[in-house]
Write a protein that binds this DNA or RNA. Sequence first.
DNA 1: GTACTATATGGACCCGTGGTTCAGTTGTCA
DNA 2: TGACAACTGAACCACGGGTCCATATAGTAC
Lengths: 200, 200
Amino acid sequence: MEERRERADAARNRRAILAAAEELLRRNDPDQVSIEDVAAAAGVGKGTVFHRFGSRAGLMRALMEERVLALHEAIASGPPPLGPGAPPGERLQAFLDAVVRHVAGNIGLLTAHEHALATQRHAEGRREANPVYLFWHGHVSALIAEARPALDADLLAHVLLGSLHADSVVRMLWRGEADRLAAGMRVLVSGLLGPSGGET
Amino acid sequence: MEERRERADAARNRRAILAAAEELLRRNDPDQVSIEDVAAAAGVGKGTVFHRFGSRAGLMRALMEERVLALHEAIASGPPPLGPGAPPGERLQAFLDAVVRHVAGNIGLLTAHEHALATQRHAEGRREANPVYLFWHGHVSALIAEARPALDADLLAHVLLGSLHADSVVRMLWRGEADRLAAGMRVLVSGLLGPSGGET
DNA sequence: GTACTATATGGACCCGTGGTTCAGTTGTCA
DNA sequence: TGACAACTGAACCACGGGTCCATATAGTAC
């Protein structure tokens, strides 16, 4: 038995921490929620949180990965157009729609994660490591490449997804204008993939 | 007049601080440069820096505004296509080219500014206040609206400019791939504005 | 040159927060 | 039930942004 099972109390505490963090983030301005707050709300010591999640950013990432599971499931094996089967252009539109909705629904968490990365002290386990972003980028990039092989799919995927993290866009999502953003992305993508999509 | 002139020693120190900050940012990872470092390099006390610039973010903003002057000048009254006179599609392409180059050339400063905003304590004088961004956004938004009145110019301008601040894109600029980014933006914009609004 | 005032200065200090430590506790397995 | 490893959590540390205020000095009036 190489992998010892997680102890029952440890598992309980982990769940408590995640739940407490979720709750606090829903209620408060995300970058005012300190780890101590989370620990207190979960009825646990600060050290425990770090022991479990490594850092503030690690905690946020754990929350994000938990929340994003359903979306990834739908992409990998759900019905088209989000899942496999539809033409790449449609899948891309569907994905961006879904991502915008997902981001809008988890904007506090996203913001908190950004903030955690920005303020973390030992700047080692830096960005790029975020598996959620990597998955999204790979998906978008592949779909663009499939629809329009001549384009720089890798770069365009970064640009499209990157804009979701921009402050001005985030502020828009806080204001509940997710539909507006989704519409804008649709226009941008149809321009890109459409018949008139310019090459250089 | 109620506006007394700045004292000579104060002006000298302000210049010294700006120069020192510029130097340190050029040489070091931007979010490792503390205000104390800047103060020490400029040969002044930490308090002086805060007197002059209010906060870390204020110092960064002052540097940014200084550096961006030439670009704004060229836009407002330089020769086309960057300056007035060219059709909006061309002006937009020229502007984005110029902005990408500008951002690439000042990526350390930009990063430091982001970091300063992210870590600042009294979260009052928050974003949106950045006059440089406002100017850029207004310009892009106006050009899009002129070229394609049916589009949501305001939003699209936020998306286009916002992507410049995305981590993945910033990393690309650190790696010196500004031309690649500029090309991608060009494709995106010509797709947006379509055959009638794109290049000629 | 002197006296006087407004302004500038800078380093000690405060504070909040991410992160670490380690002695004590508790679950697990044999 | 005993032994050991995993877990726990409160005290502690590091560090950087921001503040304070006694002191120094440019500017000015005479």
